[in-house]
Every structure is written in structure tokens, then in C-alpha cells.
Simulated scan of single mutants.
Amino acid sequence: MKIKTKLLFLALLLANTALYAQDGEKNPLKISGSVDTYYKYDFSGYESESGTSNIGTSFADQQNSLSIGMIDLVMSQELGKASFVGEIAFGPRNASSAGPGSSSGVLEPHIQNLYVSYALTPELSITAGYMGTFVGYEVISPTGNFNYSTSYLFTNGPFQNAGVKLDYSFSDRVSLMVGLFNDWNLYSDGNGMSDFGAQLYVVPVDGWDVYLNMITGFPSGSEFDITTGYQITDDFYLGLNAADYSAPNDGGGFSGAALYAQYALTDNFALGFRGESFSSKDYDDESGASVEGSTVNAFTISGNLTAGPLTFIPELRFDSGEEEIFFKEDMMPTKSASQLLFAVVYAF
């Protein structure tokens, strides 16, 4: 498995070299990606048997250890009306380990994106394959987020959608996507493409982007999401993500909102704040008994210090819950947790 993967990448790299040599600058195969590593310390000193710390959002969960994120490789090409994107990740920061309570020991390669597109007209395109989800604000790759740790909304929503979609651009300010998809995060699905998804994109004024998203189906459930960001000045950016999810058959769900504020102090240094409130809904357990939901609030301050393709991210995070969902070093439950993190991300 691993040897075959290495040979595949060697072949792709050789093919890319050949394309440059034969085609010059005309539609070459493009290769990009990132690598990242981090250190995190939970101030409670708590560490689970698997080495993870208190806060149960995706990734960056190893306690008091210099740990890896992932090697992310993206290949893409556009020839005429046709295009493709293929993205594969090695390391624990990938979609197979993105859910709550996930293990950080996942080192096998994982497909992040694998899809092809065709422009039927200048306004209308069709895309089929396995795609990073259109729902939500944050993404898997650390290069797409300001904060290195992730939100509860990200952790509990879909990460990827396999299916087919149509994108229509009415103008530079309005576009619509509709599609049929498998259940969340599945390459293949015995239920068929049982989920329907849609996204309306609007630009009310210059610098302000609004995405209205929805995906619904059985047994996935239904999520409605708004993601918006406004570049208020050259230095100040404000973003918002709000979502509501309902699982089928009284299976509960969640609702929440996260506010993102970022300010560039210099050309190479910016500070960002993420404030989130996340609530799980009441649900019926296997015996039919009703279980009440609860709320957790999380506040994260991150810095982004850039030097060319390198970004250094110091981060302080504090989470507080209505219930005792966190732990102290002596394994006693508590209502709050805090952590300090340092990450380095290199994009190429």
C-alpha cells in the first residue's frame, strides 16, 4: 500500500516534469500544498490513555508533545473546458480523523479531494467526485484557517461530500449551486446519492461575501448554515458562521455560532479572535430515554506571524461548558479547560 503510493507520486512528479518540458507554460499540471507541526499544552495537565488532551474538537489534540499535522499535496489542471483537482493528505490532520473523539494516530494517506469539472457554458459548470464540503467556515487544511485549532461547528459538521453538482453564475455577485450527494464523508454509499445540497452565494457590497448553505437527506440529517465575511478595511476582517443541524428519528443535533475578528498590525503580523457558542440538542438514547443537550462556549486568540511561505501561530484557548465535560489532571470532571499552542505551517 505504502510502496504503491510512493510510486504513484513519483510517477505524477515525473509526468509534471514532462508536461512542463513539452507544453511550456501552457496548462501544466500544478502541484501545491502544505506541511504543519505543533506543540500544545493543556493547563489542567490532563492526558488521556491515547495521549490526547481535554478539548474535543478536531486535530491538534496531543498533550505536551511536539506533534505533526499533515503533508497535504494538491494536484490540479485545466485544459479547455475541463479541469480536475486531486488532493491527498498524510498525517493525523485529515478528514478520516476529523470527528469528535478522533484519534491522532492516523498516518495512512487519505483523499481530501478528487473531482473533475466541465464548463457547459461560461455561466454553468458540472462537477463530480469527492469534494471538501461547501458547508461551514473552517476547512481541513491549516492554510485555509486563521486559527490552528478548530471550532465545534467544524468538528460536528460534514467534512467532505461525494456527488455531482451544478454551479450557475448569474453575475459576479450572485451564484447558485445545487447537487446530489452521498451520506457525509463517504467515498461510496450503499444508500445511493440520498442527500440534496444547495448553496447561494451573494456579494451585497464589495468586500462582503455571504454563503447560504443547506444539506439534507436520510440518514445524514439536515444542516442549515450561513457563512459570511466582510473585509471592513484593508487591516480589519470580520467573519461569522452560524448553523443548525437536526438528526433524524429524534437523534438530537446541534446549533451554534462563531464570530471571527482579525486585525493586521503589520504586513507580517496579525491577531485574530474566535468566539463560539455551541449547543447540543436533546435526544433519545437507545433505551428511549430523553437526554438533555448542553452548551459550551469557546474563546480563542491566535497570532499569525508570516515569513514568506512560513506562518508561525501562537494560540491561547479557553473553553467553558454548562456541564462537567472536561477533566482535571486527577481525572476529576470540571466545567472548563484551557490550552496554549504553538504551530508552524509551511505552504508551497
Rank of each mutant, 00 (worst) to 15 (best):
K4H: 11
K6Y: 11
L7F: 06
L13H: 10
E25V: 01
N27R: 02
P28R: 00
Y39W: 09
Y46E: 03
G51I: 04
I55F: 08
S58W: 06
S58Y: 06
M70D: 14
I71H: 01
D72Q: 08
D72S: 10
E78T: 15
G80S: 04
S83P: 09
R93D: 15
A98I: 04
P100K: 08
L107S: 08
E108N: 13
E108Y: 08
I111S: 11
Q112T: 11
Y115C: 05
P122N: 09
E123Q: 15
S125C: 01
I126S: 01
T127L: 06
A128C: 00
G144M: 10
N145E: 04
S151E: 01
Y152S: 14
F154D: 06
A162H: 02
Y168T: 08
Y168S: 09
S169I: 01
F170V: 09
L176V: 13
V178C: 00
L180S: 14
N182E: 02
N182I: 01
W184D: 14
N185L: 10
G192T: 06
G197D: 09
A198S: 11
V202P: 06
V203R: 14
G207Y: 10
V210R: 03
F218Q: 11
E223F: 04
D225I: 10
T227S: 15
Y230F: 12
A243W: 03
D250T: 14
G252P: 04
G253H: 06
G253K: 05
F254I: 02
F269C: 05
G275K: 04
E276D: 05
E276S: 09
F278T: 12
K281Y: 00
Y283M: 05
D284Q: 13
A289C: 01
S302L: 03
I313M: 12
G321A: 15
E322K: 08
E323S: 13
E323R: 13
E329N: 12
S338M: 11
L340S: 11
L341P: 00
